[in-house]
Structure formats: C-alpha cells, structure tokens
C-alpha cells in the first residue's frame, strides 16, 4: 500500500502496540489531540489513556519516566513535540540513559522520537537537526529515515531494540512523500545503510530529507552523463562503515551532504572514516555540503540560503567529476 512517511511511522507504532502490551506512548498532547503532527492520532481511543499518556510540559520528566519504565521491562515510546526541545532533557539522555548499560549493565529499551529538520520555515527553534549531539554520545542509537518503507521498518526495529533509540522524523517528509509499504510485518535493521541510487561516477552520502535532494540532483546530472550513486545512511549512529567504504571504492569521489551545521557535523566524521578505510581509493577531495555555522534562520530567503539546495549538489558534483 502507498503510505505517507508520517502514516508509515504511525502504523509502525500502532502495530507494535497491538502486538506487544509492554509498548506504551507518552509525550505532550499525544492523547486526545493525537500529537502536534498527529502521529498518535486515534491511539488513545484504541489503546486507552493508560498506554497513551499526556504528560506535563517537562522533557526531563518524559525521558526520565520513559527510562524508569524501561527498567521494569516496558518499551516506552516518548514523543518530543519537536526535536528542537530535546536539549531540555539532555542530562537524562546523556548522563542517565546513555551510560546505563555500560556502567551498571541495565538495558534501557526506550524510543525517543519526534520531528526534526528544516525546509518548513519553522525558525530557529522548530527546524533544527540536533542528531549530532547524540552521535557523539556512546550508548545511543540515532536513526534518521528517508522513506516511508524505512520509517516504518526502523520505528518497529527501534521499539524492539534493547537499547535507547533516538528516532528523528523529518517533518518536511511527513506528508510530502508517499511510498510503497508492505502489509506484512517487517523491520529494517538499525545500523545498515542502503544504496538509494546506483551510480559509477561519484557518491553522495546523506540521509533523511537530503536523500531526496540528492536523488533529484542525480536525475539532473544524469542528463550530463554524470552517474551519481546515493548512499542513504538511514542510521547515523552506529554508522555503516562498510557501506561508506564500499561506495567510495566504487566511485572514488564523494560528497557528504547534511542539513545541520558544518563544524563538528557528521560529514567530518564520515570523512575521517573514509580516510581510515579507503584513503587510497580517493580520486579527489572529500566534499562537504552542509548547513551554515549559525542557527537556522526563520525568513524563507534566509532559510533557503542556510540549507543545502539541489543546485549546490549539482554544482559540487560537476566540480568533483572534473577534478
């Protein structure tokens, strides 16, 4: 069936709640209102207020309570109304949840999910991509799906995982893309990238909404006989080092593309992995296309300037191909 990205996530959580009585949801306005983006629309009618809990506006309490419940063997799915608010719970996530298994051997099977990302003119507090804070935080899995198929398969995998999983839903994709999602139960493995488009000339390594920008650029570049491979990471922690190495070995040229700020961003980490794994295979410099080193601005012309564009990818690909 064809589902929107949002519906795929919603269906994934719904199915897990149907199958597993230990799964429950908590967050702000997720009950009768169904969540700010309606990901949990209708859940309270089906699963009841005991399993679909509206919380106070208190992100540390939401994460803390989800963590505590997970210690009793529950599988909580906590919603952040926007992932921009996740630093409100930073200590719980970083010092409490992430370190638990390493320090005292307690598994914390919880999911922290919510909308992130730009291109919607949400402004500096409703458009951020804060995933890197958690990539640099051992003990957490960080998932950023790009398609309805992956979104459903990965949210189910995250709920079934025995570790704390942060699930970044790209709000630009919520209702803008539809994709084929099978009716039967499936999961997409966490930590495995996928080739979104095969190509020979150069690789674009990216994830989430930027996968679609890369594919659009690849179509344009194909007319110029530049054959672009697009690697969709799907999970940014743990990174699929093997898939990154493989695509570089194949095309020898690589662009790394992400929305968040450049300095200390994921591109730097991936460049380091390429350096460690396949340095000899490179035929040109590793190119970064990223957001600017500032907060993400509100006004549409400014936001457009801040974020990577299809034209940026086309320009950089031409430059790299000619290198």
């Amino acid at each position: 069936m064809q589902l929107t990205y949002l519906e795929a996530i919603r269906q994934g959580i719904w199915e897990e709640m149907e199958h597993d009585p230990t799964v429950f949801c908590l967050g702000e306005d997720i009950g009768i209102y169904g969540g700010a983006f309606k990901v949990t629309d209708g859940f309270i009618d089906r699963f009841g207020p005991e399993r679909v809990i509206d919380t106070p506006i208190a992100e540390s309490a939401i994460v803390g309570a989800a963590f505590g419940a997970s210690l009793t063997g529950m599988r909580p799915v906590a919603e952040f109304q926007f992932m921009d608010f996740i630093p409100c719970a930073m200590n719980q996530i970083s010092n409490m949840v992430a370190k638990t298994h390493y320090l005292w051997g307690a598994p914390a099977p919880l999911v922290l999910r919510g909308p992130s990302g730009g291109y919607v003119h949400g402004g500096p507090f409703h458009s951020q991509n804060p995933e890197m804070w958690f990539v640099h935080n051992p003990g957490l899995k960080v998932i950023c799906p790009a398609t309805p198929y992956d979104a459903k398969g990965l949210i189910k995998a995250a709920i079934r995982d025995n570790n704390p999983c942060l699930f970044f839903e790209h709000k630009y994709l919520y209702r803008r893309i539809k994709g084929e999602v099978p009716a039967e139960d499936y999961v997409v493995p966490i930590g495995k990238a996928r080739i979104a488009r095969e190509g020979r000339d150069l690789s674009v390594i990216t994830y989430a909404a930027m996968v679609h920008s890369a594919l659009e650029a690849a179509d344009m570049l194909a007319k110029e006989s530049i054959d672009v491979e697009v690697l969709d990471l799907r999970t940014v922690s743990p990174l699929d080092r093997e898939a990154i190495a493989q695509t570089v070995k194949k095309t020898n040229r690589v662009i790394i593309l992400h929305e968040h700020s450049r300095t200390g961003g994921l591109a730097g980490e991936i460049a380091a992995i390429i350096n460690e794994e396949v340095f000899d295979d490179l035929d040109g410099p590793i190119v970064r296309i990223t957001g600017l080193d500032s907060a993400i601005p509100f006004s549409p012309p400014q936001e457009e300037h801040y974020l990577p564009k299809v034209s940026d990818i086309v320009r950089e690909a031409r430059r790299l191909k000619a290198y």
Binding site: T22, G64, S70, L71, P76
Partner: peptide
C-alpha cells in the same frame, strides 16, 4: 522522574 517512571512501569503491569 526516573523513579516515577519505575512506578509507572509497575502500574502498567
């Protein structure tokens, strides 16, 4: 909040 969550988990059970 963590201990509150423990109580919540137990109550769900």
């Amino acid at each position: 909040p963590v201990m509150s969550g423990v109580a919540l988990g137990a109550r769900l059970q």
